[in-house]
Design a binder for these strands. Structure first.
Length: 276
DNA sequence: ATGACGTCCTGCCTGC
DNA sequence: TGCAGGCAGGACGTCA
């Protein structure tokens, strides 16, 4: 389940491998992964384009190409984008293979087939509504305590679903949200309007910290995540609550519980993160 | 406008 | 032992 730190890890590992190379033909084994344009057109248009630079916005990986084009990739739950040698064996879940000008390949693999690819002229990037409507980058300077306070004010929703809302903060998913709430000692079911200024400040710091640590540890590999070179991340070893139901809280020793919040499983310490 | 919930999909795990 | 069913969750569509 790639979230911001995982997508950023993919970007960092692929950037030195891909920058300057050209696409030399694409094999599309599962056409539905390509959202735009039509797969036939996609194959034609991307051919010969050069990869100038890799960037990221929220959980979207963005390949800036020559000729004012952009290849946008979303890995969703189980997607991966890996730089491979031509002869490496193909996985049964590899759906798109890009041939590169140095003879290597870039392969898009996705067990659950939720991932998506878009190829668009830069001028049409706004047609990708998910990308266009993203909120602030939580590690950039636009994300401030005041921004968080303003966004949470007047929202009669529980805090957890709001943190998962990509139009507010871009890049948080289930794992880092639970970790941030635990660090800030806030129960995932608290109504956003009931958070005190002190709690919001604590939450702000916690969000930045867990994302930063996730990147430093090259992401969390809970089930499927691998980076652009096929390697797993390390942050799962440092998770304090996610997927640790029944284990003792690192802070107080009480047992971590699991409960559905907003339809998503949430892990928290009922002692440190009181419902109030 | 806002929040709740179903949908997509495969693999893994549990329980009968 | 084998199989059915539940669960995992990012983003989007639909509904109230």
């Amino acid at each position: 389940m790639p979230e911001l730190p995982e997508v950023e890890t993919v970007r960092q590992t692929l950037q030195p491998k891909l920058a300057g190379l050209k696409f030399c033909g694409v094999q599309v084994y599962l056409p539905k992964m390509i959202k735009t344009p039509e797969p036939e057109q996609f194959i034609k248009e991307i051919d010969g384009k050069k990869i100038v630079k890799l960037s990221r916005r929220g959980k979207y990986l963005i390949l800036n190409l020559s000729d004012q084009y952009t290849l946008v990739v979303h890995l969703r739950m189980t997607g991966s984008l890996v730089y491979c040698e031509n002869g490496d064996p193909l996985s049964k879940h590899t759906h798109v293979v890009f041939n590169l000008s140095n003879g290597a390949q870039l392969r898009f693999t996705d067990i659950r087939q939720f991932g998506q690819l878009w190829l668009v002229p830069n001028a049409s990037l706004d047609s990708l509504s998910g990308l266009k409507n993203l909120g602030v980058e939580p590690l950039e300077s636009q994300f401030t305590r005041d921004y968080l306070k303003k966004e949470l004010r007047n929202r009669h929703a529980r805090i957890k679903p709001l943190l998962l809302d990509q139009t507010i903060i871009a890049g948080l998913g289930n794992i880092y949200t639970d970790e941030a709430l635990h660090r800030a000692k806030i129960n995932p079911e608290r109504l956003a309007t009931t958070l005190t200024p002190r709690e919001i400040a604590s939450l702000y710091n916690a969000i930045r910290a867990v994302l930063q640590e996730g990147i430093e540890n090259k992401g969390t590999t809970f089930r499927n995540f691998i980076d652009g070179e096929g390697r797993a991340g390390n942050y799962q070893e440092q998770l304090q609550v996610y997927s640790r139901e029944g284990e003792p809280c690192s802070n107080c020793g009480k047992v971590i519980v699991k409960k559905k919040v907003g339809g998503r499983s949430s892990y928290y310490c009922p002692s440190c993160q009181k419902a109030k």
